[in-house]
Amino acid sequence: MDTDGREPDPRFTLANERTFLTWLSTSLALSAGGVAMAAVPRGIFEPWVRTLLAVVLVLLSALAAALSYPRWREVQRALRREAPIPPLALAPLFGYGVALVAVLALVAILLAG
């Protein structure tokens, strides 16, 4: 860990840590959603739709898990240097990715019904 700068207020460090843990929890939820989607019985969704939804969820899960620590480190470094917090560049990807899965699932449910 970069030790340049001052030790930040513990409240900010702990808030950063909670955010890191939330990213990991989000990753687990996305992964569970992907596994659940892959386990949906064959007659409910078209197989390709089920596979697409599962793959997108698991990929989002892997991204969230893989990027959570580097993000924590960037924010911690900014706190130590009393610099602006860097923007979360992947926020749109996660937001739109989950929205895409929800819309595709909704369409598949409506077509199946």
Results as ranks from 00 to 15, higher is better:
67 L>M: 15
96 Y>I: 11
62 A>E: 03
3 T>A: 12
66 A>E: 09
45 F>N: 00
85 I>W: 04
26 T>E: 04
80 R>D: 08
110 L>I: 09
105 A>M: 07
37 M>R: 02
49 V>C: 01
111 L>M: 12
23 W>C: 00
63 L>E: 08
46 E>V: 06
104 L>K: 04
9 D>H: 15
23 W>V: 04
81 R>F: 11
55 V>M: 12
88 L>A: 15
44 I>C: 05
91 A>R: 12
98 V>L: 14
51 T>Y: 14
88 L>G: 06
64 A>M: 13
92 P>T: 00
86 P>A: 13
92 P>N: 03
97 G>T: 07
113 G>Q: 13
34 G>N: 00
107 V>M: 12
65 A>M: 02
66 A>F: 13
12 F>G: 00
107 V>N: 07
13 T>V: 09
93 L>D: 00
59 L>R: 04
41 P>Y: 06
77 R>L: 04
87 P>E: 05
6 R>P: 03
17 E>A: 15
89 A>I: 09
37 M>K: 03
103 V>P: 02
29 A>I: 05
103 V>M: 14
81 R>A: 15
82 E>V: 10
36 A>P: 02
32 A>M: 05
68 S>K: 04
3 T>G: 08
81 R>L: 15
89 A>K: 08
59 L>H: 05
80 R>I: 13
103 V>E: 08
22 T>Y: 07
32 A>F: 04
13 T>M: 06
77 R>C: 06
68 S>T: 00
101 V>N: 02
6 R>N: 09
102 A>N: 02
66 A>Q: 12
89 A>E: 07
34 G>R: 02
48 W>R: 08
17 E>W: 09
83 A>D: 15
80 R>M: 12
63 L>R: 05
29 A>T: 08
5 G>F: 06
68 S>L: 01
104 L>M: 15
102 A>S: 14
68 S>W: 02
104 L>E: 05
76 Q>R: 14
27 S>P: 01
91 A>P: 01
86 P>H: 10
15 A>H: 05
96 Y>H: 06
19 T>A: 13
37 M>A: 09
7 E>Q: 13
51 T>D: 13
66 A>M: 14
79 L>T: 11
58 V>T: 12
42 R>E: 09
27 S>F: 03
10 P>N: 02
36 A>L: 09
96 Y>D: 01
66 A>H: 10
34 G>F: 01
94 F>M: 13
83 A>R: 13
8 P>M: 03
110 L>G: 12
72 W>G: 01
98 V>R: 04
87 P>L: 04
50 R>V: 01
14 L>V: 05
108 A>N: 05
37 M>D: 00
37 M>S: 05
9 D>S: 06
36 A>Y: 02
10 P>Q: 12
5 G>T: 01
70 P>A: 05
63 L>G: 07
36 A>G: 08
104 L>P: 00
6 R>Y: 09
84 P>T: 02
11 R>V: 13
99 A>N: 03
52 L>W: 09
26 T>L: 15
37 M>E: 04
